[in-house]
Simulated scan of single mutants.
Amino acid sequence: MMLQNEPGLLALTCIGVDHETPTIRTFRLRGTAPITYTPGQALVLKVPLPFGPAWRTFTISGGANGDLHLTIKAQGQGGATRWLHDNLTQGAEIQARSPRGHFTLDLRGNDRLAFVSGGSGATPMIAMLRHLADTQPLADVAWFHAARDPDEVLFAAELAQLQARMPNLTVAISVSRPAPGWFGYRGRISRTQLSTAIPDIGRREVFCCGPQGFMTEARLIHAAEGGDKAQFHTESFGGAPVPVATPEPVAAGGPAFAMTVAEREIQIRPDESVLQASLRHGVIIPCGCGEGMCGTCMVRLVEGQVAMVANGGITPEEQAQGYILACSSRAVSDIKVTLA
């Protein structure tokens, strides 16, 4: 079925699907024109679920000649990732916002790198590593990856191939549920395990992606090993919960503005974001990182003014079209926003 192209969105066609593990697939997508991105950036897909579109953020795992690859794990039943696994087949179409995000090698300030990933958090790392293999094959990189079981280890064969091309690349893999014949690391991430796998991790610049608890533990280990906190970077699309203001009635004539969202008229305080006020009143706006990075919570400002502090999650072109990030915008007048 041909999708009606929505202004400001990329129209993408699936040109192939690769089965990486029993629960993870790589979707190869092609636009009407070549798409540029920086390794580590993400794409926000408009997933057409039966009850309405869902905006979901996925890191770009690679691509060539203007195509994009998304490596996605199916989570549960009835959600966006399951829909993608069941419906995004060769020839199917889907829409997305332009690539975005600052979790890239542009942050690098150290010649010694450590990639620390858990589960599908390997996707930004493989994009960065492929780039380094092509541009800096002598780069000093140590990668530690944690998976649930051996069958769920992502990119294992490719990592072996990249080690042949990159003499200074070391790879350590740990599984929490080892099978017979597994000779790698075992168990959940710990200081002993990570410092054994990467003995000089405290002197390396770390790029970390995975479940929130995994990233928090890795950050603590890096600090305990003498690491500079400014050299520990995380991708957090959907990890930490978004702080929500405690529901409190706003006194008549008090410091509040009127906000219309999803056809509802509610109140928003100057000290809370559009996202927080919406959630406080039971209006759900999809959100990923809660830090202005991923663009998942983008809404259109129809009336009024806001103060927005974005962190790479919105482009100047999108702002010119009236879009704002709900997690990073605060009202400075009465406002009206739409979710479409």
Rank of each mutant, 00 (worst) to 15 (best):
I60W: 03
P39Q: 12
Q212E: 14
L70R: 04
R30D: 00
A277W: 11
R56W: 07
A240R: 12
H102S: 07
P178K: 11
F207C: 14
L107R: 15
N87K: 08
R82V: 09
G119C: 01
L107Y: 00
T57G: 13
G213C: 10
G295K: 10
P241N: 13
I201P: 15
P34H: 05
N110G: 12
G101T: 00
D334R: 08
A133K: 08
T21W: 01
D151K: 09
L9R: 05
G304V: 06
I314H: 08
I314N: 08
E318A: 12
R186T: 14
T234N: 11
V244A: 13
G118K: 03
V153S: 12
Q267I: 11
G91M: 00
I173K: 00
H19K: 14
P22T: 12
A307L: 10
R97I: 01
D151S: 15
E6I: 03
T26D: 01
S329H: 07
D140C: 07
F58A: 01
R203Y: 12
L220A: 15
M308Y: 12
C297T: 09
L3D: 05
L129F: 08
V261T: 11
G253C: 15
A42W: 13
W55A: 11
A256N: 03
P22C: 03
R28F: 06
V309W: 08
F103I: 02
M293D: 05
P180S: 05
A146Y: 02
P243M: 03
V299H: 09
W83E: 12
S98V: 10
V283S: 04
D134S: 04
R300L: 02
K336F: 03
R203C: 12
A164W: 00
G210S: 03
F183A: 13
F27L: 07
L68H: 01
I285C: 11
F144Q: 07
V250C: 08
G295D: 11
A240I: 08
K46Y: 06
H131V: 04
I268V: 15
V274K: 04
E158W: 02
Q95E: 03
D334C: 04
D149R: 15
G202Q: 12
A54M: 03
E93S: 00
Q95T: 01
D86C: 09
P178G: 04
A197F: 08
P211K: 02
